[in-house]
Each structure stands twice: as structure tokens, then as C-alpha cells.
């Protein structure tokens, strides 16, 4: 890890740690949401496909949070970070904690996230931190398939029956206010972006283009740019995250220190 030390001297460890939590917490929470579908999806083939995506996210979470643990250097493992922090310390995007809703809403959430995730990982391939670039490389291969699949399904359901169209439009309108957060630079980002570790907020233009093109093919109407919710990156979440964590962390909290 020769090149990694370069980062340690140029970027504040605490800032890098925050960035890694954002990546790992988003995949953790969204993977958790997707895993809720297992056994309940509308077709067997979809049940299996969604579990594959969820498994990819759990794997990516392990990579991001392991690196976070290493960077933090306080002896907290990836599992400790996932299972023993409270909501206020989570850095995931609010979009990822939105409840599943119907299958259409789950797929729309997935598409909006994948479109960003795919671009974000693409930018991270060139990260000045070799460890970040290595995770991005592995994850981007998986996410290239995620976006292909979620984009395809959004198009098909948008341009399907009147009912599927209406459900997808409703899902889009409902989730849209949670998309702006992906492109906001917090004060802490500035140093990371400057050091070439994190991707610039300018991913928005590409994201807009990809989303616009997909929605048009799906015959869905892109909502007007209005108020955007934010706070995930600072640990100010929606009420839903607390319940996700109550479930996720139950055993670790109820039996402190027990081996599993």
C-alpha cells in the first residue's frame, strides 16, 4: 500500500473516514432494504436478481467499512462500524433509507441511486488514494450491471400498462426530493475533492442527462427542480433509519460482545 501513505499526508484522516462511511453506509442501508424483499418479490426471477444486487451491496459495504476501520485506526472493525453506531453517526444518503414501498418504488429508488453510484465509482477509479480506487474498480463492475438492469426495468414499467406507468410516476415524484443530496458538497468534501480522493459534485450534469434520457424512454415526466432534502451526510436522517438500525443491530445490541 505504498501509494496510500500519500493520501494520509495530504488528507485529514477524519475527513477520509467520513467519506468512506458515506460510501459504506449507503450500500449497507440500501442492501438492507433490498434484502427485505427476499421471498416476497413479484416473480421468482426478480427475487433472485434483487438478492444478487443486495449481495453485491453487502460485499461493497465490507470493503468500504474495512477501509474506514483501517483509516480510523481505533480498533473498530467493519462489523463494529455497521452494528454499533447509532443513527446520528450514519452517513448514508437519505434516498437509501426510503422504505421499499411497492416493487416499482424499490426499482425507481434503485435506478436513481445506481445512476449516481455508477458515475461516482467511475470517478473514483481515478482516485489519488489507491485503496479507494481498488474498491471502486471491483464495485464498478457490479454496479455497471445494476444500472443496466434498473434502467431497463424503469423503462419497461414506465412504458408498460397504464397502471405500471402511474405507479412509476408516483414513485419518481415521491423519491425525487431525495436525489439532490447526492450532488451537494459539504464543507468536508472540499478537501477530499481538492486532494483528488472524492469525486467532484459536477457529476450532476451527467446524472441529469442519464436520468432525462431514461425517463423520456420510459414516458415518465421528470419532476420540476424543487426543494431537496439533505442531511444524510451530516448524520441528520429521516425517521426511517432508526428502525432499519433497530433491526440490523438487534443481536449485537441485545448480546454485547457475543461471538456470532
Amino acid at each position: 500500500m505504498g501509494s496510500a501513505t500519500v493520501t494520509d499526508t495530504t488528507v485529514d484522516r477524519a475527513v477520509l473516514f467520513e467519506f468512506l462511511l458515506r460510501m459504506g453506509d449507503s450500500t449497507l442501508v440500501l442492501g438492507h432494504r433490498l434484502s427485505e424483499w427476499c421471498g416476497h418479490a413479484p416473480a421468482l426471477e426478480e427475487d433472485i436478481a434483487l438478492a444478487n444486487t443486495a449481495l453485491d451491496f453487502i460485499g461493497q459495504t465490507q470493503l468500504w467499512l474495512s477501509l474506514a476501520s483501517e483509516v480510523e485506526g481505533k480498533g473498530r472493525s467493519a462489523d463494529d462500524l455497521a452494528y454499533l453506531r447509532d443513527a446520528r453517526d450514519f452517513r448514508n444518503l437519505l434516498l437509501t433509507e426510503r422504505p421499499n414501498g411497492d416493487f416499482g418504488k424499490t426499482l425507481m429508488r434503485q435506478f436513481l441511486f445506481d445512476a449516481w453510484h455508477h458515475l461516482c465509482l467511475g470517478a473514483l477509479l481515478g482516485s489519488s488514494d489507491a485503496r479507494v480506487a481498488a474498491i471502486a474498480e471491483k464495485a464498478s463492475k457490479e454496479v455497471a450491471y445494476h444500472i443496466e438492469r434498473s434502467r431497463d426495468l424503469v423503462v419497461r414499467l414506465g412504458d408498460g400498462t397504464a397502471e405500471s406507468h402511474a405507479r412509476m410516476q408516483e414513485a419518481l415524484d415521491d423519491l425525487w426530493p431525495y436525489t439532490g443530496e447526492m450532488f451537494v458538497n459539504e464543507a468536508s468534501d472540499v478537501a477530499l475533492v481538492a486532494a483528488g480522493v472524492a469525486p467532484p459534485a459536477s457529476l450532476k450534469a451527467e446524472w441529469d442527462a442519464l436520468v432525462a434520457e431514461t425517463l423520456s424512454e420510459a414516458t415518465l415526466k421528470k419532476p420540476a427542480e424543487g426543494h431537496m432534502h439533505k442531511g444524510g451526510k451530516r448524520g441528520i436522517h429521516t425517521e426511517h433509519l432508526g428502525y432499519v438500525l433497530a433491526e440490523l443491530q438487534f443481536l449485537q445490541r441485545a448480546y454485547p460482545g457475543a461471538p456470532w
Binding site: E45, I48, A49, D152
Partner: peptide, 13 residues
């Protein structure tokens, strides 16, 4: 097209 995607998910796990 979807059959190809589903095949990837079902048969190449």
C-alpha cells in the same frame, strides 16, 4: 432481452 438478464441472475450465481 429480459430472459438474458434473468439467465445471468439465475444461472450464473
Amino acid at each position: 432481452e429480459m430472459a438474458i438478464n434473468n439467465a445471468r441472475d439465475v444461472y450464473t450465481r
